[in-house]
């Protein structure tokens, strides 16, 4: 894998890696992608199976349901006026 491609993937997935980690990741990822390339040898026109079983969509009524335990969800969180505190935009 080219260094540029790894940089693009790291940026897209919001990950960082040290130079030594990058070297390791590039070697591993190249080995794994070569392994994945073997899939092109499989000759099939089968329909893609998004699920292993026949999953039927079930929808519920669009209504507000109470959440079980909001207080527990907030426990130990940095909160401000009932909102989670995150990075600035």
């Amino acid at each position: 894998m080219e260094e540029k491609e790894l940089e693009r993937l790291l940026k897209t997935s919001r990950l960082k890696a040290s130079e030594s980690e990058k070297k390791l990741i590039r070697a591993d990822v190249s080995e794994i992608i070569s392994f994945f390339d073997r899939i092109s040898l499989v000759d099939t026109e089968e329909k893609p199976a998004y699920h292993p079983t026949d999953v039927q969509s079930r929808l519920r009524e669009d209504e507000v349901l109470p959440f079980q335990d909001v207080e527990l969800m907030k426990k130990g969180r940095k909160m401000h006026n009932g909102y989670f505190v995150g990075p600035r935009l």
Binding site: L15, I25, V29, K47
Partner: peptide, 30 residues
Amino acid sequence: AKRRIILGTFIRSESVKEKYYTKALSVRGM
């Protein structure tokens, strides 16, 4: 985890999605 995030992100890239991801789903069907 980092390795799998990077690989998963690569596999879902527009240019190779058909080659890896969609093909994998077809092989699963088979």
